[in-house]
Design a protein around this nucleic acid. Structure first.
Length: 287
DNA sequence: AAGAGGCCCTGATAGC
DNA sequence: TGCTATCAGGGCCTCT
């Protein structure tokens, strides 16, 4: 589910709820996420204030009042829910549509604040929580990540020089977080469609004008997705349970066998595995 | 060094 | 109905 735009939507809705709130209590029901949640986790967060909610790439960063941080990554299937606790201490959802949005299974972490709790749900457990002690450690943690697509340093000069002598496919580079961070498997296909570049093309073959397109369309696809509230393959929702609607805008993702949406293009969208990730592209207009 | 592939894990869906 | 196989948004690690 979560690529940079979805994580940004979660950040925005989470921030409204938990900014400047003090953690009352933390319950970890399952420590076995992507990385094991350390035993000190609950006590570390208790009585601490969450000053701000930031994001870098696909990582949520809870900024804490003692100048430390709590990193959250949603992995493939992680979701965050705000659950109200009323005075009788029974539980209600804040879902706008009043749907039973909090699943019964796989609620691994609960952070209590005021009269509600933040619940982390993750069936596949590829997500994680990490305590980062200070700003230096945070910088270190992200050291092997490339620029975010919105960074002005993610420009065609950077891309063009990065691709010199690299035989790896352009699709794989868009997924390579060391090259650019925040793009995932859905938006990688969408970006290359807009660029009219075949996902299988070796990076070193790309011209400067191709690199310009990649830069431009990466920014464009991700910022559009944020504007539309995130995409959804399988029920992407923000923390109020409101579904994103970017999926109706997909040009290629999961459209294999259908007609290319590009004006006057007679192509058919194909699906192909590139490094074990499904990749979608038009067989005619993406060269 | 670059790049491919395996692996962590559960659930939904398709096919028999 | 119930089985098995395949696939899913990510990222880290190992091997060549």
């Amino acid at each position: 589910m979560p690529e940079l735009p979805e994580v940004e939507i979660v950040r925005q809705s989470l921030s409204k709820k938990i900014k400047q709130k003090k953690v009352k209590k933390v319950i970890v029901k399952n420590r076995n996420l992507r990385f094991k949640i350390p035993v000190y986790f609950e006590n570390f967060l208790k009585n601490i204030k969450i000053t701000k909610v930031k994001r870098f790439s696909k990582y949520l960063i809870l900024c804490l009042s003692n100048n430390s941080f709590c990193l959250i990554h949603l992995g493939m299937s992680g979701t965050i829910h705000i659950v109200n606790i009323n005075k009788r201490s029974s539980i209600t959802n804040t879902s706008f549509y009043n749907l039973p949005i909090l699943p019964k299974k796989h609620n691994h972490v609960e952070i209590y604040l005021d009269n509600f709790k933040v619940v982390y749900n993750d069936p596949r457990r590829f997500g994680f929580f990490q305590i980062i002690k200070n700003n230096d450690q945070l910088k270190k943690r992200f050291l092997n990540l490339g620029y975010e697509p919105f960074n002005y340093k993610f420009n065609y000069e950077y891309v063009y020089s990065f691709f010199k002598n690299k035989k790896k496919s352009i699709k794989n580079f868009l997924l390579d977080q060391k090259f650019v961070c925040g793009i995932g498997n859905i938006y990688a296909s969408e970006i290359l469609f807009l660029c009219k570049i075949n996902p299988n093309k070796s990076a070193y073959l790309l011209k400067k004008k191709d690199c310009k397109k990649i830069v431009f369309n990466s920014k464009k696809v991700l910022s559009n997705a944020i504007k539309k509230g995130g995409s959804t393959i399988k029920n992407f929702k923000d923390t109020d349970g409101i579904a994103g609607n970017f999926q109706t805008n997909f040009n290629v993702y999961q459209r294999n066998g259908l007609n290319c949406k590009r004006y006057k293009c007679k192509g058919i969208i194909r699906k192909k595995n590139i490094s074990n990730r499904s990749t979608f592209f038009c067989n005619i207009c993406q060269k």
